[in-house]
Design a protein around this nucleic acid. Structure first.
Length: 1025
RNA sequence: GGGUGAUUAGCUCAGUGGUAGAGCGCUUCGUUCACAUCGAAGAUGUCAGAAGUUCGAAUCUUCUAUCACCCA
């Protein structure tokens, strides 16, 4: 049956993938030889809400190439797939679905029912990306598909697994080792989702903003002389001031200021350091006073050089506040509205002032309880509050005023009279600079992130960072490319505590239970345990065996229960003496763990830890992690820390960090730009093989790749080329009765010997490239070999051999071609799994599918025949010379021409004789005649020491031939001159390596010979001309 | 502001010290029996600029310019 002219990817891909799955081809250990090395690779788990984008396609193509390559080599291979539960994203998706369906909201239905809905959604839609990865050809062991929420308490049937237990166990163990603690720290707070989020989930975007300048009056009517000096110390400005000037982009946070800071070296403010100043907002009678302090943080060059310090709402300020022991006053609630809780502003302000004056101190909790939002601003949205604050300050005359022509006012400012503007009254306006500011946005919610002081759980990363750093420093773990090590080190060397709690419902609930403290006090006592029963046991130790606990839904319910019989629960005596049944309320921490905390356990969790499974012993530590640069610290570094902290072992040997896929203009693909290329669309249009090959051919280490459809089409054509080479072979009976051969056939024909050697050479090249993660080198080597050598030359060479009269040679050529094409298919399989599998199955008799084919091990040393290599190089040079001359002399394509030759040496003669048939066919030569002298109108073609000539008298244009030869001659002469110059430099001969010198000499000799031939030819033409 | 990287053919990019390559595009020619998703031939470069190290620099060093990304 004749093959089609092209490969029908659409039809074949699903069929072939199904066949692989049916046969269990991707199962862990499939195709492994006894005692083989193991190779394991963990998929970076895509979000369960995710769908395949170009980054996934790239990342997984690379993983699949390595996986298929190792599997074919007979290694015990595992590619472990799975998804992570993506707390915030999934919760968002499900909430949106509920809203769309007109269902109750999350809060209305409550935690348990909402989680049921999430699981329902997961079971219905959570497999999207799996099917998309299959479209790409990913050869994961899907039977082992993992999920970071598997085995969670509410998980429905079919969602069992070890992950929940693993996560909880790690939390408890780390807690018990003192690696996890609860504390109040500044975190990125998403006011829309009302949860802490990680740095990764924050996008800093430059947005047009404004900077207001306000006066903070000095307390008690104090004044000082404000002096500005130029570089030489000369006074350029001097005035008496009763205030300090502050610039801010967020006036609403002034309400929570704890101090004003200036740089210790800033002489302008030296006279007032230590003094108190007034926050110029809030009711006049309760103005708060705050101290002026020094800190290294303020930049004297920026703004006025003085910075207001709002520890509870800014990361830099928080650090200053910590250093200077400045209280942090939280101003907003979880939705970023101005707080409306607690005592009146009058009381709060009074308290704050006594703190500022040093009359009393506040604990963190006490400070947090103080609500310094003036009564009229309470409950307002933060942006509304901003407007009101600005308005109030300006009304009071405490905004810094400037002439309307001040350049800082921006483009809207009128032109000064001296610059051609109209003269006007000396009316001053508030200084409001318009300038771009970097603002943090939630990547999911798109609202402005608020730094917020909240109670959270933290991993004390400084305690576990050591081994993670050492492993990369000493080479136990390799990070490629080299430069990404710097990113890794930089982040880990400056590591911050890791906030692992999230105020979400979808996730692993923190295994901590709270109960009143029998010793009294305002804070709950907490215990950490894997289960509620064990937590209660621990509480029983504290409360006595007879204590009766009741686990309540939340903190509120616990308080209600407790207050029902104890008025003052912070008083130890009251607790101890309580009458009646001692029902102790207990509630579980409502928060869940950061998704990254569970993904941090991915390498061991997917292999069944904490059980001591066979897979864990076989595949851990894993071989390679392939991931994007954007999560080096968020995921790679955390896996390193956690694997060492939990099992004391590296998670992987090598981390290969790949770059970003961009659009053809180099822009990051983003939905808002509309430049997204959907890999599934591309697979539809060009086939998965073309998409994969494009990505691998462009995967130069550490470089972003700009993807264009033209490029993909080019590689689709490559698949067609391969297909048609096989089609040609098939039509010539090459695969009739063919069985896969391990060893190359014994070849006598030079062309056959040559191609066998070339095949072995490319095999070594591909293995070396893949071993070094140089995917582009491997792909390009295979492309150049398959198209440029096999199709362009070998297939052409084979034609006269197959058609010839020598049956033995024809048979040998068929065997060689079958072997070579098999090699192409095998080596291309990791890159283009579908078309190679299809061809493999179509041609010849096979013991296994190519997915389990034996990866070639041919060695160039065994296969290359140097004489054949030289001979074919000579043949190719001759053919190209003739073709080039013909084209330039405009010899009609279908015209057979005679060929003359002089100075043919023995080797050349042998080469001609052995390959006459194919030279004649490919160069369209009808005869070869040896001669001493070329007749008039002969075109000259130098090949080695011989000079070939095409007598084209009457056809040839002498002038054209002259210019053709002159051009070649000039080029050769230029080369000769360069080489000669080099060789005549004694220092070159002394210092360059021997082989380089020898090579140079050889090249020079050859070029000289060629130049002479050309000179002779030119001289002859001149005589005739 | 700090860090990292880039700048090579018209475009997109390879190229870790030995005198520059690929794909696409472009020009010319070609439907004969694998393939027009093809074949043959061809043109195109001060390797961003300057200085240095070296027998020799696209490659190493320094500076400059421009761009990109990450972090503040």
């Amino acid at each position: 049956m004749a093959m089609d002219k092209t490969f029908d990817a659409t039809e074949a891909e699903a069929r072939l993938y199904a066949a692989w799955e049916e046969a269990g081809s991707f199962a862990a250990g499939a195709n492994a030889r006894p005692g083989a090395d193991t190779f394991s690779i963990m998929i970076p788990p895509p979000n369960v809400t995710g769908s395949l984008h170009m980054g996934h396609a790239f990342n997984n193509t690379l993983q699949d190439i390595l996986t298929r390559w190792h599997r074919m080599r007979g290694h015990d291979t595992l590619w472990q797939p799975g998804q992570d539960h993506a707390g915030i994203a999934t919760q968002m998706v499900v909430e949106r679905e509920l809203a769309k369906a007109g269902d109750e909201s999350r809060r209305e239905m409550g935690r348990d029912r909402f989680l049921e809905k999430v699981w329902e959604w997961k079971q219905q839609s959570g497999g999207t990306i799996i099917n998309q990865l299959k479209r790409l050809g990913a050869s994961c062991d899907w039977s082992r598909n993992a999920f970071t929420m598997s085995g969670a308490p509410a998980a429905p049937a079919g969602e069992d697994g070890n992950f929940h237990d693993a996560v909880i166990r790690v939390f408890v163990e780390m807690y018990e080792k003192g690696l996890i603690y609860r504390g109040k720290r500044l975190v990125n707070w998403d006011p829309h989702f009302e949860t802490a989020i990680s740095d990764l989930e924050v996008e800093n975007v430059e947005t047009p903003g404004q900077m207001w300048h306000f006066k903070y009056p000095l307390a008690d009517g104090r004044t000082y002389t404000y002096v500005e000096r130029d570089e030489d110390g000369a006074v350029v400005f001097e005035e008496e001031r009763d205030y300090i000037s502050i610039a801010t982009t967020r006036p609403e946070t002034m309400l929570g200021d704890g101090a004003v800071a200036v740089h210790p070296s800033d002489e302008r403010y030296a006279p007032i350091v230590g003094a108190l100043c007034e926050i110029p907002v809030g009711p006049k009678e309760h103005r708060r006073l705050i101290p002026i302090i020094t800190d290294e943080y303020p930049d004297p060059e920026f703004g006025s050089g003085a910075v207001k310090i709002t520890g509870a709402h800014d990361f830099n300020d928080y650090a200053v506040a910590k250093r200077g022991d400045i209280p942090c006053y939280r101003l907003m609630d979880t939705a970023a509205r101005m707080r409306a809780d607690g005592a009146s502003y009058a009381e709060a302000a009074e308290l704050a002032v006594s703190v500022a004056k040093g009359d009393r101190t506040l604990s963190e909790t006490e400070a947090d309880a103080v609500n310094l939002v003036p009564d009229d601003l309470r409950g307002l949205d933060r942006f509304e509050a901003r407007a009101r604050v600005v308005e109030q300050i300006t009304e009071e005359g405490l905004a810094v005023m400037v002439p309307p022509t001040d350049p800082r006012l921006g483009t809207g400012a009128p032109v000064a009279p001296e610059e051609g503007g109209e003269a006007r009254d000396e009316q001053l306006v508030p200084l409001i600079e318009s300038k771009p500011i970097m603002q943090p946005f939630g990547d999911r919610s798109k609202v402005v992130i608020e730094p917020m002081l909240t109670d959270q759980w933290f991993v004390d990363t400084t305690q576990i960072v050591g081994p993670a750093l050492d492993a990369v420093r000493d080479g136990t773990v390799e990070i490629l490319p080299e430069r990404d090590k710097k990113v890794y080190f930089h982040w880990l060397e400056n590591i911050e505590p890791w906030c692992i709690s999230r105020q979400l419902w979808w996730g692993h609930q923190i295994p901590v239970w709270y109960a009143p403290n029998p010793a009294g006090g305002t804070d709950w006592h907490h215990v950490c345990a894997p289960t509620e029963a064990e937590a209660l046991d621990k509480l029983r130790v504290l409360w006595g065996d007879d204590a009766e606990f009741r686990v309540t839904a939340d903190e509120g319910a616990a308080l209600d229960l407790f207050r029902a019989y104890i008025d003052n629960w912070t008083d130890e005596g009251a607790i101890r003496q309580a009458q009646g049944p001692k029902t102790i309320p207990v509630f579980r921490d409502p928060d869940v763990l950061d998704t990254w905390f569970s993904s941090g356990l991915w390498p061991i969790g997917t292999l069944g830890w904490p059980e001591d499974t066979d897979e864990l012993r076989r595949y851990f530590p894993t071989s390679v992690l392939i991931t994007g640069f954007d999560i080096i610290f968020f995921w790679v570094a955390r896996m390193m820390m956690m694997q060492y902290a939990v099992v004391g072992e590296r998670p992987f040997d090598t981390v290969y960090v790949h770059a970003l896929v961009r659009d053809e203009k180099g822009k990051k693909m983003s939905k808002s730009l509309g430049n997204v290329l959907d890999p599934l669309d591309l697979i539809e249009e060009y086939g998965a093989d073309a998409v994969r090959f494009t990505l691998s051919a462009m995967a130069a280490m550490g470089r972003d790749l700009k993807l264009s459809k033209d490029r993909i089409a080019g590689y689709r054509n490559f698949g067609t080329k391969l297909w048609n080479a096989c089609r040609f072979a098939e039509m010539n009976g090459v695969f009739e009765g063919h069985r896969t051969q391990d060893r190359p056939p014994r070849a006598t024909a030079t062309a056959n010997q040559w191609i066998i050697g070339e095949t072995a050479k490319v095999r070594e090249e591909v293995d070396a490239a893949l071993g070094a993660f140089r995917f582009n080198d491997a792909a390009n080597a295979l492309y150049a070999f398959t198209w440029g050598i096999v199709c362009d030359w070998y297939v052409e060479f084979s034609k006269p051999l197959l058609d010839g009269s020598d049956d033995a040679i024809a048979a040998e050529t068929r065997a060689t071609m079958a072997w070579v094409l098999d090699r192409c298919l095998l080596m291309l399989h990791p890159f283009m799994p579908f078309v190679t599998e299809e061809l493999w199955g179509t041609l010849g008799t096979r013991d296994t599918m190519i997915v389990h084919g034996d990866w070639p091990e041919d060695r160039a040393d065994d296969c290359v025949v140097p004489a054949a290599e030289r001979e074919m190089a000579w043949v190719i040079q001759l053919i190209e010379g003739v073709r080039s001359a013909r084209a330039q002399m405009r010899v009609p394509n279908n015209m057979q021409v005679p060929l003359l030759v002089s100075d043919l040496d023995a080797e050349g003669r042998a080469a001609w004789e052995a390959n006459a048939a194919l030279i004649r066919r490919l160069a369209r030569i009808d005869s070869l005649t040896e001669t001493e002298t070329f007749p008039k109108g002969t075109v000259t073609i130098p090949v080695g020491s011989a000079t070939f000539g095409m007598p084209l008298d009457g056809i040839v244009d002498v002038a054209a031939e002259m210019s053709r030869l002159e051009k070649s001659h000039a080029k050769v002469e230029k080369e000769v001159a360069g080489l000669d110059k080099r060789l005549s430099n004694p220092k070159f001969v002394e210092s360059a390596p021997e082989d380089v010198v020898a090579d140079t000499r050889e090249t020079l000799a050859a070029r000289r010979e060629e130049a002479m031939t050309l000179e002779t030819a030119l001289a002859r033409l001149r005589e005739l001309g």
